[in-house]
Each structure stands twice: as structure tokens, then as C-alpha cells.
Nucleic acid binder design. Structure first.
Length: 474
RNA sequence: GGCGGGUUGGCGGAGAGGUUACGCAGCGGAUUGCAAAUCCGUGAAGACCGGUUCGAUUCCGGUACCCGCCUCCA
């Protein structure tokens, strides 16, 4: 059995991973709040934890891993978006518009993350389907003295949980000292956070013992992980920006509601994404979504390949140069597999030991990519294909499709190659290479790679191959 | 102000207390009608200052700079 070691941000140490139940390894990752298209930063945890999912499935068996990633579909930003639509004259009730918005966003999210080669998690619960469980958990917290109701709100009593701040390495007193938040009058303590808040008639709401209202942020993840994974599970993941307050609050809620359990054993946090060396933000104008990239012609596998090039625990810088490099590297891989590989044989292979070992070492994806390259350099093309699939970069289906496209382009280019060979033959005798060069220029403009050697002429479809531009070439 | 992370060759980016990372780019050569592709070869690093050590880029301390979080942003 492969030994997996993971950096646990709770203990700040790389530890050997020992599942609670090897027959059912349980992972929870914070998913998106579905109010808009996923931006590129949202994609990083998806790729990181998809890679973890693939590793765990390989090591423990595909049927022995439960991966939960939620959709937070109750949120004031969603309400605001829906309200803006309504004010802009959209038909339907606010509730309809909210439902429409979340449905649409979830569909987009699936489309975009599918394009990145991310497997669908085992469960993708929606917060609105677990409001009952949230209310139950909040009730238990009040009963246990960890929460209190006031003015229609229910607040978590941070001082009731001695461990509060441990996950993120903060002390409650320090945070209060440096706090910049305005303290609501109904809070016993400035750090107390909202579990439930009242909704007026214009907002979505659920009946509760504290009146009609809606859950605060944080409680949905505690309720859904409990419902789907139990009070103790193996790994909890998300972006480092969620470590505080979101994850800290989750720990507080879950551990106080279930003091007998340990909640998440291992916490994994991915570092942030930057763009050309800067934080991605709307104000800097370098903000873009996954869809923007896909539409610009940067395919999902290129995005994934670039992501895997940097360890998840490090800030990742997205640059156009990296994307271009990844693209040409992947083209090389596809060419090698197409020319020398056999996909049917590849499908019977196991993932490469070196690559599995790299992933098992706290998801050292960069080392895995180096190993991938080594497979290419040592002529192990079937292994190359197998591991491209394993890593989720290019699935067998995608490889097949790209090889097909390549093959048909090669067919198309055959007569041109013959033609060019003849012209070159003639030019060798006359020493007039002008027509050959003209033809070559035309082919290059159509994105064709032109290779001429003693052995003959070879034409290959390059990255920007455009069959339409062949028109008019002899 | 509090907390956390980082600083490796031209660029990207790893591991390891003492032996080439690797990729891209560069340079030299082979090859080519010219190229492309390919192959062979090759230079180049560890922010700064101290400490531990026979030996540190790798451990410890400090300095500088950068980044993130503390605001329902992954």
C-alpha cells in the first residue's frame, strides 16, 4: 500500500495519512457560493482536490472514497444578484429569480470544472436542502451553551470554545485587539458570529424556532459534512483564505455540537492564485473567469497543466507565458502518443509508480509532471498516455479525440506533402527554391509544421492549424 | 496593529545536510537548399547578516523585501 503523506494545516506538519476507515475515506471540500461564474482562482482548489481524489481512489479503490463538495446556494450575494435582475425588469418572483440564478450558476460551474478534467465529487449537496439539519445543529449549540438567540439572530458564543483560533493560529484576544469590524449591539462578544439571521418578506427565509430567517455563512458546511460524512472524517480542504474565519467557525460549530467526535482530522489549504505576479482583482483589471479563458482558446487541459506545475501550498502565478509553454508541451505529448503509442494497451496499464509516489508526497504535482516528461523522454508512450489520463490532464477519450483530429488533418495534408516534395525535387535540380519557399510560407501560415529532410517531406498539423487556409495552395 | 506564508540560475520551479534536479530560453555542434523538428554538448543559483556543523542553498536566530488573511473572496 502506498503511504500518503499530507501537510496538515491544523498541526502545521507533514503527516502520514491514516484514514479512519480505509473502506470509506471521507473528504469534504468547500465549494462555491453560486452567484456568478467561477473565476480562475476558484478553479485552483477544484484541481488540487480533484488530484487528491484521484490519488485516494487509486490507493484505496474508486469505491472507497467519498468526496463531498457543496454548493452554497443561500447567500446574500445571490439575493442581491437576483434583486438586481428583478429591478432590471426580469419576470418572476424574487424566489424564482434566485432559483434561476443558482441553477444557472451550478450548470456553468459544472461545465467549467468538467473542462478542467475534474471528476464530479461523490456528493454535491446544496445548502438549501440542509436547512433542517442546520436548524437542528443550531438548536443543539444553544442547548449546549455554545450559542444564544437575540433579536431574531442566533450567535455562536466564541468564548465557549477554548480551542477557538487554533486552526488559524490566532488568539481571540489578539483578534479583538486588531479588529476592524463594527460590533453589532446584540453580540455578547465582538468575535461572536452569526448562525442564523432574520429574513424580512423580501428575502428567502425558512421557519425556525427563532422566527423566519436564513442561515449564516459557515453553518452549512458543518451541517452537510455531518449529514454526508459523519461527525468525524478524514480530510477537509479549501483555499487558505477560508482558514479564517470560515474553517475556524466550522470547527467551532461542529466540535461544540459533537464534542465526542474530532470533526476533520487533516486540514488542507491551497494557497492563492495570482495573475502575472499580482493578486487577481476586479480593480486591477486582471480578473477573469475560467470561461473567459476557455473562450479565448486556452483549453482546460492547459489550465490544469499550468496549475499542476506549482505545489498547492504555494502561491500560483498564472501567466500567458506559462499557458503557452503548457500548450506546446501537451501538443508534444499528444503527437508522441499518436505516433508511437497504443491507447488500447495504455488502458491496461497502472499509473506510474513515480507519479503516484510524487502525489503521495503531499501532492507534489510538479514532480509528477517532471515524471510525465521522463516517460516521454524514455519512449514510454503508453505509460505517458495512461498517466495523462490518471492525472486528469487528458483523458483517454480526449486523447482519442485529439488523435482523430490529428489523423484526419494528416490525411488532408497528404496531397500537399506530395506536391511539395515534387516541387522540392525539381528545385534541387534548377536551384530555384522560390516556388518551394512560397508554398512553404503558405503552409506555415495555415499552421502546418513543415519538415523537409533527405528522407522526404513531412507535413504535420501545428497548434494553430487551420484547414481553411490551405485553400489556394497548389 | 495581529496572524500566516514566501525569497533558488535569464525565466518557471523541485528535492536533498556533503554527488547533474527538471523544463523553457541561451550558447556551441550535428543535420537541412534555407528552415523547422530532432540529436549531442554546455555555461548559469540559492535575498542579506550571524550561528550550529568537518561541511548548509537545505537546520537555528536576526535583517530586508514580497504576498496573503484579519471585510460572507478559493
Amino acid at each position: 500500500m502506498v503511504t500518503i503523506r499530507l501537510h496538515n494545516s491544523r498541526t502545521r506538519v507533514k503527516e502520514e495519512f491514516v484514514p479512519i476507515d480505509p473502506g470509506n475515506v471521507r473528504v469534504y471540500v468547500c465549494g462555491p457560493t453560486v452567484y456568478d461564474r467561477a473565476h480562475l482562482g476558484n478553479a485552483r482548489p477544484v484541481v488540487v482536490f480533484d488530484t487528491l481524489f484521484r490519488l485516494l481512489r487509486h490507493v484505496y479503490g474508486a469505491g472507497h472514497v467519498t468526496y463531498v463538495r457543496n454548493f452554497t446556494d443561500v447567500d446574500d450575494k445571490i439575493n442581491a444578484t437576483a434583486l438586481a435582475r428583478k429591478e432590471a425588469g426580469a419576470a418572476g418572483s424574487l424566489e424564482d429569480l434566485i432559483a434561476e440564478r443558482t441553477e444557472e450558476t451550478i450548470r456553468w460551474y459544472h461545465d467549467d470544472m468538467d473542462a478542467l478534467g475534474a471528476l464530479r465529487p461523490t456528493h454535491e449537496p446544496r445548502a438549501t436542502a440542509y436547512v433542517g439539519q442546520m436548524i437542528a445543529m443550531i438548536g443543539a449549540l444553544i442547548e449546549g451553551g455554545h450559542a444564544y438567540a437575540k433579536e431574531g439572530h442566533v450567535l455562536f458564543r466564541v468564548r465557549s470554545f477554548a480551542e477557538y483560533g487554533r486552526l488559524s493560529g490566532r488568539s481571540v484576544d489578539d483578534m479583538i485587539a486588531g479588529a476592524r469590524v463594527e460590533v453589532a449591539p446584540f453580540k455578547e462578544d465582538p468575535m461572536d458570529f452569526v448562525l442564523w439571521k432574520p429574513s424580512d418578506d423580501s428575502l428567502p427565509g425558512w421557519e425556525s424556532p427563532w422566527g423566519r430567517g436564513r442561515p449564516g455563512w459557515h453553518i452549512e458546511c458543518s451541517a452537510m459534512s455531518l449529514a454526508l460524512l459523519g461527525a468525524s472524517f478524514d480530510i477537509h480542504g479549501g483555499g487558505i483564505d477560508l482558514q479564517f474565519p470560515h474553517h475556524e467557525n466550522e470547527v467551532a460549530q461542529s466540535c461544540c455540537a459533537h464534542p465526542e467526535a474530532e470533526f476533520a482530522r487533516v486540514w488542507m489549504h491551497n494557497e492563492m492564485l495570482q495573475v502575472e505576479g499580482k493578486k487577481m482583482s476586479k480593480s486591477l483589471g486582471n480578473f477573469f473567469t475560467v470561461r473567459d479563458l476557455l473562450e479565448k482558446g486556452v483549453p482546460g487541459e492547459v489550465i490544469r497543466f499550468v496549475f499542476l506545475g506549482t505545489h498547492y501550498g504555494r502561491p500560483m502565478d498564472w501567466t500567458a507565458e506559462k499557458a503557452a509553454g503548457a500548450s506546446s508541451k501537451l501538443d508534444d505529448f499528444v503527437r508522441l502518443v499518436a505516433q508511437f503509442g497504443n491507447l488500447e494497451k495504455a488502458k491496461d496499464l497502472q499509473p506510474d509508480d513515480v507519479i503516484v509516489a510524487a502525489l503521495a508526497d503531499d501532492l507534489n504535482t510538479h514532480a509528477a509532471l517532471v515524471a510525465l516528461e521522463n516517460l516521454a523522454n524514455t519512449a514510454r508512450y503508453d505509460d505517458l498516455a495512461r498517466n495523462l489520463d490518471f492525472l486528469g490532464i487528458l483523458s483517454f477519450a480526449q486523447l482519442e479525440q485529439r488523435i482523430e483530429v490529428r489523423d484526419s488533418a494528416m490525411q488532408l495534408l497528404k496531397p500537399y506533402a506530395a506536391n511539395l516534395a515534387a516541387m522540392r525535387e525539381a528545385a534541387m535540380a534548377t536551384k530555384d527554391f522560390a516556388p518551394v519557399d512560397a508554398m512553404k510560407a503558405g503552409l506555415l501560415a495555415a499552421g502546418v509544421e513543415v519538415r523537409m529532410s533527405k528522407a522526404g517531406v513531412e507535413l504535420l498539423p501545428g497548434p494553430g492549424f487551420d484547414a481553411a487556409k490551405l485553400e489556394g495552395l497548389v
